[in-house]
């Protein structure tokens, strides 16, 4: 099996799985009907993308592995999503800040992944980027609305951005597998996205009358399977049915 490629795909897909799970958990809990529907639609898009990645990974792995095995039967340390996407929905501002900080990266990442020499990854990227451009519009729009809204909404979104800022640098961290994939023209060199990312993000924050956080200390670990305490809880929800009733279908 192409071990590097397999792990590389999981690294991309797990971001969408965990963020999709976070957004999906808001079903029926959104602050208004419109935002509730938006969050769950974003979740559905992300799950659709995840299925495409996991189906490909399952094919690479062979031994009758299915997309569901990959989604549901790994241990916490075997998920390679970035720490940002597993952060909790402390309040609506956190949900929007997390989505915005990830969408801004996701869009740049998929733009580059479209050029991958791997035709399946390139096809998935070409499909997904259309959806992600709508996610990015939605979250950027809300950053501005909250930032430039009332005193309370401004305060809340500023706090959320400040808190989550520490997880942004990891987006541009490369694992050994990533480096090999970049060399083979399959993967995206994320280190080259960093400057454009902060330019774009800072631009929107300014428009939203928000301060750009000054934090110089950044958290990382997710890409190596070392997670914050939140992932375990997400997984116990996500995996419950398959762990309790192995191989169940519906």
């Amino acid at each position: 099996m192409k071990q590097n490629l397999y792990k590389y795909i999981l690294g991309i897909a797990d971001n969408s799985l965990i963020l999709g799970q976070r957004m999906g958990a808001l079903t029926g809990h959104g602050p208004s009907l419109e935002t509730d529907i938006a969050c769950t639609n974003i979740s559905l898009d992300l799950f659709g993308q995840v299925r495409n990645y996991y189906q490909y990974a399952a094919k690479l792995k062979g031994d009758n592995t299915t997309e569901d095995d990959i989604a549901f039967l790994r241990k916490e340390r075997e998920y390679f999503n970035v720490l940002l996407v597993e952060q909790p929905d402390t309040n609506f501002a956190y949900t929007i800040a997390r989505q915005f900080l990830f969408d801004s990266y996701h869009f740049l990442f998929l733009t580059e992944l479209q050029k991958s020499y791997d035709i399946t990854l390139s096809a998935i990227a070409k499909k997904s980027i259309k959806e992600v451009s709508y996610h990015k519009r939605f979250s950027s729009d809300w950053i501005k609305r909250l930032g430039d809204g009332t005193e309370i909404s401004h305060e809340n979104i500023q706090e959320a951005i400040n808190e989550l800022w520490t997880y942004t640098d990891e987006l541009f961290h490369q694992t050994e597998e990533d480096k090999i994939m970049v060399k083979e023209n399959i993967g995206v060199d994320v280190t080259r996205l960093k400057e454009v990312y902060y330019d774009a993000v800072n631009g929107i924050l300014k428009e939203a009358t928000l301060d750009i956080p000054e934090s110089k200390w950044f958290q990382k670990g997710g890409k190596h399977g070392i997670h914050t305490e939140h992932l375990g809880y997400i997984l116990s929800d996500l995996q419950y049915m398959q762990r309790t009733y192995p191989n169940m279908e519906w």
């Binding site: 419109e34 529907i37 938006a38 639609n41 974003i42 939605f138």
Partner: peptide
Amino acid sequence: LISQFGSTA
């Protein structure tokens, strides 16, 4: 425009 997402994505 009421909402960027409707009954489906």
